[in-house]
């Protein structure tokens, strides 16, 4: 399998009035063709900023201060805005959590889809773009796609809107799709449909997908590889099987253990004490140390990342 994207030592910092916020701090990962990578973590872990950084959608005072994002022999971290805007929506597209916010409320979805095609392929005729849009809507399971082209976003339900957003993201056959909590706002039945479609289309088109989510059960269904983030850093990174079913980092273990399971009944759930620290007031040493049951003196220094049983993990206590 060939490599699609390689991120190395990426650092995205926000220079705020209260201090320097290291939202993404020295993370590295890669994704192959046809692969699905899951980035999991709680709010504030830096997973969305990681996604935004990949296509440089970082607003001031944020900035990619270091690292490289290698995609097709180009370093996206150092491309000009002009070049990036050709890539966004073309070779790389992104799906956001709230479909309502991703669509223009005063333009029909058909026009928005056609616009996406024409922006990246100016030589295409309007008829062809229209035809392609209808095909795409059909592919994502939109009933009566031809008729729906004339609908405005508010005339569609949340699930249907998210289908339009996915159709729009896939219409230029991107090589990489970044989906940031694509199903969090949806019902479970719709979530299952959308996830199924995304997985199927990724495998069929041989593209790659980065799925950003807080839902570990979703990651279990979807992903080949998983990166667990905590306070701006990746604490465990490896294959689905290794990370979810044989977790090593105490945070990963905690996240999995604290889920209410469908097949077992417990009177009390396992709980990770405390909350994720503010990025402005991180503990000394390992960021997880103040919530970790195994923390001791050794954890006053941030742990090196080591390779252990096929995955990368940053913890003094696993050897």
């Amino acid at each position: 399998m060939s490599e699609m994207l390689r991120v190395e030592n990426l650092k995205t910092y926000f220079d705020t009035r209260k201090g320097l916020v290291k939202a993404v701090d020295d993370i590295s990962f890669s994704i192959n063709k046809g692969e699905i990578l899951g980035i999991v973590g709680e709010s504030g872990a830096g997973k969305s900023i990681t996604g935004f950084s990949l296509i440089n959608l970082i607003d001031s005072p944020g900035e990619i201060v270091d690292g490289s994002i290698l995609f097709n022999n180009r370093d996206l971290a150092h491309l000009s805005e002009d070049e990036l805007s050709k890539i966004r929506g073309g070779e790389i597209s992104m799906i956001f959590q709230d479909p309502q916010m991703s669509l223009n409320p005063v333009i029909t979805i058909g026009k928005q889809l056609i616009e996406t095609v024409l922006y990246h392929n100016p030589e295409t005729s309007k008829q062809d773009a229209h035809k392609k849009s209808v095909e795409m809507l059909e592919l994502v399971g939109m009933p009566a796609p031809e008729k729906r082209m004339a609908s405005y976003p508010h005339q569609l339900s949340g699930g249907m809107k998210q289908r339009v957003v996915i159709a729009m993201a896939l219409i230029n056959s991107p090589k990489l799709l970044i989906a940031d909590e694509p199903t969090t706002a949806l019902d479970v039945t719709i979530q299952a449909q959308i996830l199924f479609l995304m997985k199927k289309l990724t495998k069929e088109f041989g593209s790659s997908l980065i799925l950003i989510t807080h839902d570990i059960a979703v990651v279990a269904q979807m992903c080949d590889k998983i990166a667990v983030m905590y306070a701006g850093r990746i604490v465990e990174y490896g294959s689905n099987k290794d990370v979810l079913y044989n977790p090593k980092h105490p945070y990963t273990k905690g996240l999995i253990q604290c889920l209410p399971r469908l097949n077992e009944e417990k009177t009390r759930l396992y709980q990770i004490p405390g909350v994720m620290p503010s990025l402005l007031a991180l503990p000394v040493g390992c960021y997880f140390s103040d919530r970790c049951p195994y923390a001791d003196e050794e954890c006053k220094v941030y742990p090196e990342t080591i390779t252990l049983e096929g995955r990368l993990v940053s913890c003094h206590k696993v050897k």
């Binding site: 039945t189 299952a192 996830l195 839902d215 059960a217 279990a220 269904q221 979807m222 469908l262 097949n263």
Partner: peptide, 13 residues
């Protein structure tokens, strides 16, 4: 509904 619920112990879609 039950079919659609993602389950870490049975991660089939």
């Amino acid at each position: 509904l039950f079919l659609a619920v993602p389950d870490i112990d049975n991660p089939v879609l």
